[in-house]
Write a protein that binds this DNA or RNA. Sequence first.
DNA 1: ATTATTGATAACTGAAATGCATCGTTTAAT
DNA 2: ATTAAACGATGCATTTCAGTTATCAATAAT
Lengths: 302, 302
Amino acid sequence: MNDLRQIRYFLEIAAEGNMTRAAERLHITQPALSRQISALEDRLGVALFDRVGRGIHLTAAARNLLPDLRDLMQRARAITERAELLAGRERVRLSVIAPPQSIEVFLADALVAFLARYPDAEIKIVEAAAQDNQDLLERGEGQIAIAARPIGPQFQARDLALGYIHLAMPKKHPLASKDKIDVTELDNEPVVVMRRGTLARDMFDSACRLTHTLPTIAHEAGSPQALTALAGAGIGIAIMPFTARVDRPDLALGRLYANGRPLTAELAAVLTPNLFVTPAIDALIEEVEKSMHAAPFLEPLP
Amino acid sequence: MNDLRQIRYFLEIAAEGNMTRAAERLHITQPALSRQISALEDRLGVALFDRVGRGIHLTAAARNLLPDLRDLMQRARAITERAELLAGRERVRLSVIAPPQSIEVFLADALVAFLARYPDAEIKIVEAAAQDNQDLLERGEGQIAIAARPIGPQFQARDLALGYIHLAMPKKHPLASKDKIDVTELDNEPVVVMRRGTLARDMFDSACRLTHTLPTIAHEAGSPQALTALAGAGIGIAIMPFTARVDRPDLALGRLYANGRPLTAELAAVLTPNLFVTPAIDALIEEVEKSMHAAPFLEPLP
DNA sequence: ATTATTGATAACTGAAATGCATCGTTTAAT
DNA sequence: ATTAAACGATGCATTTCAGTTATCAATAAT
């Protein structure tokens, strides 16, 4: 085992499922990649990919080795970073994985503040659905992800904020006067929700199931803006995600409760295992936290 | 961080303390090694060695990175081995670190039995003083070491046997009739012991200190044979190491006690961290265990 | 049947690693 | 003080290896 490069190549193909595309992402040509993988297979003495028709897929052996190889790469990276820190010329290069709304509502602001402190830092933002966040982190697509607890045991995490699911409805709506609204009050009520796969939607579904509430789904929207627009038009009460700004004065806002407790999610910064946490990373997380607390419906954790 | 080779080179120099010798062990020439290290230092941006006069020594940064780099290499090796196992063509290649007497008394026999089961295995034996055993393991000089507990927390271990420190003396000696002999009975008594650094000697010294016993060290010997010879000549009672055969009918044997309990050491097979334990390794340890239990003064652990 | 996609292969090129010879410095021996 | 040995660094030639371009074979989509 001499070469981390071949491992990096292998991981890229495993993540991409396709040699040609992996080669592009690695900035090499496809034949070069193909030959490196052959070499790796020879050296390990085990086939890593089934060449089936055109296209490939992982062999059982490769699936077996995959987690450890990922771990090895991350460790190697962590060591390099520590070495650079020891050399005093730390180069901050981070990829942050976050859901679209998080980017819009607080990540952008946080990055501005962070870059004021670390002007030379290179921050890349990877947009991903909430549910894919931890997968991408595990595949090494980034070092930090914004996600809600629970978080896989293999990760470290830093608490960021407590997010409340809130409701938006026209001011004339019968429930508009209330600050706390229980899920059960939404029985048979027309609601507009985010599409499946977003955190707020999934939590809302769970709350309904647990309380045997059956709201009428009037519409599934793809963005918080669409949600508020529909609510404003009287189509239904909008179930707003945690990280959404509501800037419409015609709408009343309330918090959603279930069993007497507010529906909340603990948002956290999830860190790649073995990541060596530099002061810069700490600073970034701190800025994210500050920026989140400035947003409505996101409160500091106790 | 692309290249495990450079890390392997670095570790070899760190272990050897000398580039020329490290180059020999790596089967490359000294200039090649020198350049690779320069390249590694450039890439990490930090000096790993101070070039002081002729010769080198590790910088603080290098000492800081050393354990993690070792760990990385061991993980890489473990992965390769697992891959070979998955490929069904496991090539058993082990280095076993053991003190000289262990080799003589039971390791040799164990290897014969093991090789009968795995004829293609390549086993290398590294002879090392008991006290150096764990260091060598940590430096990656071998995968398995025979050592006495306590064992560093970073290692896995398998219990092998309980060893008793025993005494050898002429049959006419006043203490010869006793089976159990307490350390305190050796006060002012002439004894012959192994040289410092062997396990039995160190334990004997500790026992004397704890019980305020001051035997007269008549001689320090380098081998168990010398010990029995001196005891037979009446120079003093021989404090025998755990793993020594006494085949002289003119000598009486007894067990050494302190505070009413026999002086024992729990011998164990210590395994490199992250070592992937194959059936072959299990078999080897099993054979070692069997072979030890056949030796006198080594008993199975409860 | 035709075309586009995808991975493998061959021949070539350029970069990187290695070996050999040698130098400069430091330490040990005399 | 002088010499010899030890040790790491450097210049140059050679080999090894990863990468590129061009192309092929197999397969899936139309």
